[in-house]
């Protein structure tokens, strides 16, 4: 009675098709890494001084601040939103931390306590913009644009045009000192990366963010508290912006709103070039690391190649267009917004 259970020719083809597709997907997730290696090889050959220990350290230092910023944005993008508040908020944190420590303008000197206080302020503001987005159901893009403009206004107001030069010995040491040859700022970035890695892979929060990004309906079905998780994402973003603001002030030795400029869009580019999809659910912290290096390598190499400043932006734009075109899934009825 037990009819021979056979799978038809079509069933076989279906299984092969699926295997081919998952292999393709595995290759696609490696695409950013391959692009990074290809870029390094090309630039080592062409750019003089690229492939050297000195320049390697240089890359590591320059990738520090963009990396921390993109780590902050990774979870936001994994959830399918975007956030531009870092431009104003980062500038504000940078300016305010300079005013709080021993500086050339006022006699306030909180020393090391300034850092946690300032990061708390950054988290507070980011939580507020998260509240507006989640509870008020406003598009995160526009909310963060408003918050960014308010905060950069306060930043400029805080030092009234004369940036406060940092005198605090701790900050000057942090700017120049290094440990095992790697400057402190880069260590901060490495530590932030490790925390982000743990957050993503070792905590419930990480899996919940991935679930929400993949399919919010399934996440609700599994019983995940979606709003609370989204809120925590904005807390993490606030923390990263706070760190970036402090690092910016340390690096330039003074507090000015310029610290926040040109932070957000390169960070979002790094996250996407690294392989995290803008509609959420794919990619992760390691992808962002690769993305951040791709962007930094391009900037560094263009300077080493002595490319004329006028066309540098165009070359950067073209390379990123190519990199994303290669690492983005293609399909006839795939909906890409």
């Amino acid at each position: 009675m037990d009819k021979q259970v056979h799978t038809s020719r079509v069933g076989e083809e279906f299984a092969q098709e699926m295997k081919k597709q998952s292999q393709k997907e595995r290759f696609m997730s490696l695409a950013p890494l391959i692009i990074l290696l290809v870029l390094i090889v090309i630039f080592s050959v062409t750019a003089q001084g690229f492939f050297s220990i000195n320049n390697f350290y240089n890359l590591l230092n320059q990738a520090a601040i963009p990396l921390v910023m993109s780590l902050g944005l990774t979870f936001v993008i994994l959830m399918g939103s975007t956030d531009l508040s870092a431009e104003g908020l980062g500038g504000f944190i940078g300016s305010v931390v300079a005013l709080m420590v021993l500086n050339s303008k006022n006699d306030m000197n909180l020393g090391a306590f300034a850092i946690p206080l300032v990061v708390l302020i950054s988290i507070g503001v980011s939580m507020l913009s998260g509240l507006l987005h989640i509870k008020g159901k406003l598009p995160s893009f526009m909310v963060s644009y408003g918050v960014s403009s308010i905060m950069s206004g306060f930043a400029v107001l805080s030092y009234r045009g004369v940036p406060a030069r940092i005198r605090d010995p701790l900050f000057t040491v942090m700017a120049q000192g290094n440990f095992l040859g790697i400057p402190y700022l880069t260590w901060i970035a490495i530590v932030t990366f490790v925390i982000a890695y743990i957050l993503q892979n070792r905590t419930r929060f990480g899996s919940y963010v991935m679930a929400i990004g993949d399919n919010e309906a399934i996440a609700k079905n599994i019983g995940i508290n979606i709003e609370w998780t989204k809120f925590k994402v904005f807390v993490w973003l606030g923390l990263c912006i706070g760190i970036v603001g402090v690092m910016g002030a340390v690096r330039v030795g003074q507090g000015d709103v310029g610290i926040g400029s040109d932070l957000v869009f390169p960070a979002i580019t790094s996250v996407v070039v690294g392989g995290t999809s803008l509609s959420g659910g794919k990619g992760g912290v390691v992808h962002t690391l690769i993305g951040a290096f791709i962007v930094t390598v391009i900037n560094n190499a263009l300077v080493l190649l002595g490319v004329s400043p006028y066309i540098q932006q165009a070359v950067q734009g073209l390379i990123i267009l190519g990199a994303v075109a290669l690492s983005v899934p293609h399909g006839k009825n795939l909906i890409v917004k």
Partner: peptide, 18 residues
């Protein structure tokens, strides 16, 4: 399918019950 493609097998099995 109600699995989260980006998470590991273990994470999927115990999601919501960690």
């Amino acid at each position: 399918q109600s699995l989260i493609l980006n998470l590991s097998v273990a994470q999927n099995i115990f999601i919501g019950r960690e």
